[in-house]
Simulated scan of single mutants.
Amino acid sequence: AVYAGAGEFLTSTSTAHNIEVSPAEVATTTAITGASAATKGDDVTLAVQVSPAPSGGTVQFKDGSTDLGGPVTLDAEGKGSIAQSFATEGAHSITAVFSGAPGFVASTSAAHTVTVTTPAPVDVVTHTALTLPVDVKTGVAVDLWAEVKAPNGDLIPSGGEVTFKDGDTVIGTAVNVVDGAAKVHHTFATAGTHTITAEFSGAAGYLASVSQPGALEVTDPVASDVATTTVTTLPTNPPKGVAVDLIAVVSPTPAGGTVQFMDGATAIGAPVGLVDGKATLSYAFPTAGEHQITAVYSGAPGHLGSTAEVGKVTVTEVGTGPAGSSSGSLGNLFGSS
Rank of each mutant, 00 (worst) to 15 (best):
A189P: 02
P119W: 14
T228L: 08
P133S: 11
K149H: 06
A223W: 07
T128G: 02
V124E: 15
A141Q: 11
D179Y: 12
V175T: 12
P213C: 03
S209Q: 07
D143S: 04
V134E: 14
T117I: 13
S158N: 02
D179W: 11
T236F: 15
T236A: 14
T126G: 05
A174R: 04
A198Y: 03
L234G: 07
V122T: 15
T190W: 01
D166P: 01
G180I: 00
N152D: 15
G160T: 02
A198F: 03
V231S: 09
V124Y: 09
T233E: 11
A106P: 09
T115M: 03
L144A: 02
V134G: 10
A189Y: 05
A191M: 02
G214Q: 05
G205R: 01
A204W: 05
S224V: 08
D179C: 06
I171F: 01
V122Y: 01
N152T: 10
F200N: 02
G139F: 03
V210W: 01
A146P: 00
D168P: 04
H112E: 09
G159P: 14
T173A: 11
V162K: 01
F104K: 05
G241E: 09
V125E: 14
A106Q: 14
L216A: 07
P238Q: 06
K183P: 00
T233W: 01
E199Q: 13
V162H: 06
V136S: 01
L216D: 07
A182K: 08
P238W: 05
K165Q: 04
G214M: 00
D154C: 09
P235W: 02
F164W: 09
K240C: 08
V242C: 07
A227K: 11
V218S: 00
T193C: 00
N176Y: 04
D154S: 13
I171Q: 08
G180K: 00
P102T: 04
T195D: 06
V134A: 13
S107A: 13
A215I: 04
T193H: 03
G167C: 09
V222R: 08
P119F: 14
A111W: 03
T230A: 14
V226W: 03
A106S: 15
G139M: 08
V242H: 08
V218W: 00
P133D: 08
T187K: 03
P119Q: 10
H112R: 10
T117F: 13
K137T: 06
A227W: 07
F164S: 04
V114T: 04
L216G: 09
D220T: 13
V124H: 07
I156V: 12
P213Q: 06
S209E: 08
H194K: 13
I156G: 11
A111E: 12
K137V: 01
T219H: 00
T131N: 09
V170Q: 15
G160L: 05
G172A: 03
G214T: 06
V226Q: 13
V105Q: 12
G192V: 05
S209T: 05
V122A: 15
V184C: 00
V136A: 00
V105A: 08
A215E: 10
F200G: 02
P102Q: 14
Y206C: 10
N176R: 05
A223S: 14
I171L: 11
V177F: 10
K149W: 02
